[in-house]
């Protein structure tokens, strides 16, 4: 059986961002699921996303778990395609502001979270768009 998120992680290997999208109601959503969280239809297609959005909220955590940078700059990105997601930021905290245009990018994962079947596969982060 294929995991619901496999197409996302497979595409990320090629620096592409795929978002699940409902064939019934047309809404993109995140994270991947076997049913659309908007209308509960089960026919899901994958949308090629530019990985571009606006910064919805952000913080800088000063005490973090082992294997996580400290401080750790995090934000919620509202993608142009609709869904919001959490991302670590490669940009400086002081440069961030709500509403700024940001882009997702692939990066190697160097933390200590046990990612199970995804061990060794790339993760993603966000940065202010140039």
């Amino acid at each position: 059986m294929e995991a619901a998120s496999d197409p996302f992680w497979d595409a990320l290997e090629d620096d592409r961002f795929l978002l699940p999208s409902c064939e019934d109601c047309g809404e993109a959503f995140f994270p991947p699921s076997r049913a659309c969280p908007h209308c509960h239809a089960t026919d899901i297609e994958w949308l090629e996303s530019e990985g571009v959005g606006t910064l919805y909220a952000f913080t800088r955590q000063h005490r973090t778990a082992p294997g996580v940078p400290s401080p750790n700059v995090l934000g919620i990105v509202e993608l142009e395609d609709g869904p919001r997601l959490l991302a670590q930021f490669a940009s400086e905290y002081d440069d961030l502001e709500i509403g700024a245009t940001v882009t997702l990018q692939t990066r190697e994962y160097a933390g200590t979270v046990d990612r199970g079947r995804l061990e060794g596969r790339p993760f993603f982060e966000a940065r202010l768009r140039d």
Binding site: A57, Q61, T64, L74, I98, Y109, G111, V113, R115, F123
Partner: peptide, 25 residues
């Protein structure tokens, strides 16, 4: 979310910090 959020290293104060920021904004 173990696949999509945990690797970014969030904490509970971290997410509440963002709702505080949005509330004030």
């Amino acid at each position: 979310d173990r696949e999509f959020q945990s690797p970014a290293g969030p904490t509970i104060p971290g997410v509440y910090a963002m709702s505080l920021q949005r509330y004030r904004y």
